[in-house]
Design a protein around this nucleic acid. Structure first.
Lengths: 190, 190, 190, 190
DNA sequence: GATGAATGAGTTTTCATTCAT
DNA sequence: AATGAATGAAAACTCATTCAT
């Protein structure tokens, strides 16, 4: 049973990172918001970087879990692709804070030494996606394209949209998820 | 004639911002890279924020100039839209440092008080784009969509790609520009 | 029967103090090396200073015991003096960690408030030595010198040597003990 | 012309290091004593270690200069050896703060990573001394002994004495210097 | 225009110590 | 006896910014 304090610290940190940005957030901010003492924060996390990493792993694993659940092994390429885009959009609407945080870290990760460990996390995901796309391309289901381009065509719109999106009721969110899923398929289908 | 020092400082700053990120870059970094003294930097710029803003204005105006030049008042919606996407991609390939810097600042701008002035710069561009899209939608040339979605469909892929793209020879860059231009048109045409 | 834990903590502390120095050693270091919990350490010792003091008392009493054993009440001044120098050197070779720790604490004791109690321990020894030397001087056996000088002449070489000495087989250690004992006698004999 | 501030900081640091010990002295102590700001201290020195190193180099070079001046190339081994011991004792009486500081650092240097650079400084001096002693031993002027032992016999008493010595008028200091010089010679002469 | 010394608030981090369990 | 979460004061160090020269 992870302690309450730990949870409070993580929640306060996510809140602060979103509101002020990762770099501009100080440990003192997190202390004030969480009610924990400085020492307590360092008792659980070795530093700001470790805190961010823990939050990121939570986010990634939440998304992954949700995506896995939607995965049907007998799905056609079209169904699989659409389901994965829809999954991203829905998850982002349900967890907007985690989505934006993930997005910020992704943009910081290449330059910031705090995130060496995190970089490999992102690359793993990318490698998986690349393999899957290659398989679909080999089957003739999608266009043969470098994965960096294919990835941009499929997920670029969703990412660009979600970065600025307001909260929406579930049914509208769902329609938007469908819209981006359809667009992704149209952009890369063979 | 703007002085050499000013130029050296701007160049050093851009280099540092890209390498270490805006927040992690200190005036001391810029001093070391530029060869200018602390006092000299403050002689030309009122602070780190002002430096970043100057770099951003240079970038935006370079891009705008290049885009304007390509603008044909008698162009069809399809031609106009494709030309604007192509323009972005080509400019980004020619000025990768400026593109990435712009991208970083865009992601920091909403939260960082250093960038109050810059926020309006981005919104201006967005307002212009929204108006143009609305006109094209009214003509029946493109789908009727909230601009946030239309914008994501048109430019999301290019942005996502350029964020990680390697340098390429001009002819390949041009082919990729065409590819994203075509995809943008397919994604929103009526 | 003193508990195992207590012993483990003392051993770990001595090891850490030697390796990193007293001041640079944290309770966390000792916790990690000893396997005891923070709370356990404080259960046995009231703090870092108390731990050091306990170690020091062990060292001093070990040395004293060994020296006492060698003390012959009918010894001539020469025998007594040499035996005491030899005793120091032999003890230091047998317990190098304790010797070095003692040496470190002696150098810290005058300035560090942690060691108020320890200071009197050292002074006691010094007073005893001074009395003994005065007696021998009164008998005409040794030169009449301020004790600070006599002490330096007798034990300075041994201390200086032991501070940097490597471990040696017992027979060589013994020869070195004899050498310093002889030198001490030559330096102060009448 | 080294700035006043730099001098003030060094003086304050030496004072503090002596009074409270190196490890127990904080930058805040030095700030308070010197009147300089924290930033100013770091402007001149990269940290506490660098400050100590600068002080040590000053001390060593002062001592070396004084010793060099007393060096007569035509001196007999006896004269050379005595002159070097006398030099140490006199210098220590004239600069008691620097002597004690040097002594403290020597005892910290082996364990503290702050003093990596300083360790080589000490070793250099030792190597020089060893070479000189070997020459004298080859001439048959002094006993053939491992240098660690010879060094302890020659300088151990002076070090031990000086570590605790009170300030004295010059003529008494001089007599004590002679006493330790004579003792050093007696201890190692062939 | 140019320099770099000086500032001091703010940041991350460490650490001895306490205490409920 | 033993644990380890929790504390908060204090440490080292950074940094944007100012200003006399």
């Amino acid at each position: 049973m992870t302690s309450d304090r730990r949870r409070q610290i993580l929640d306060a940190a996510l809140e602060a990172f979103l509101e002020r940005g990762y770099a501009a957030t100080s440990i003192a901010d997190i202390r004030a918001r969480s009610g924990a003492s400085t020492g307590s924060i360092y008792h659980f996390f070795s530093g700001k970087g470790a805190l961010a990493e823990a939050l990121l792993r939570e986010a990634v694993s939440g998304w992954a879990t949700q995506s896995m659940a939607a995965l049907d092994p007998k799905a056609t390429p079209e169904q699989a692709l659409k389901s994965s885009v829809r999954g991203l959009v829905r998850w982002a609407f349900e967890h907007p804070a985690q989505f934006r945080f993930m997005d910020e870290i992704r943009s910081l990760a290449p330059a910031d030494p705090d995130f060496a460990a995190v970089r490999s996390l992102f690359e793993e995901g990318r490698t998986l996606g690349a393999a899957q796309y290659a398989r679909m391309a080999a089957e003739g289901a999608v266009r043969t394209l470098p994965f960096s381009i294919a990835h941009a065509l499929m997920l670029g719109p969703a990412y660009a949209y979600l970065r600025t999106a307001e909260a929406l009721p579930a049914d509208q969110a769902s329609r938007i998820a469908d819209l981006f899923a359809e667009a992704a398929w149209q952009a890369v289908k063979a």
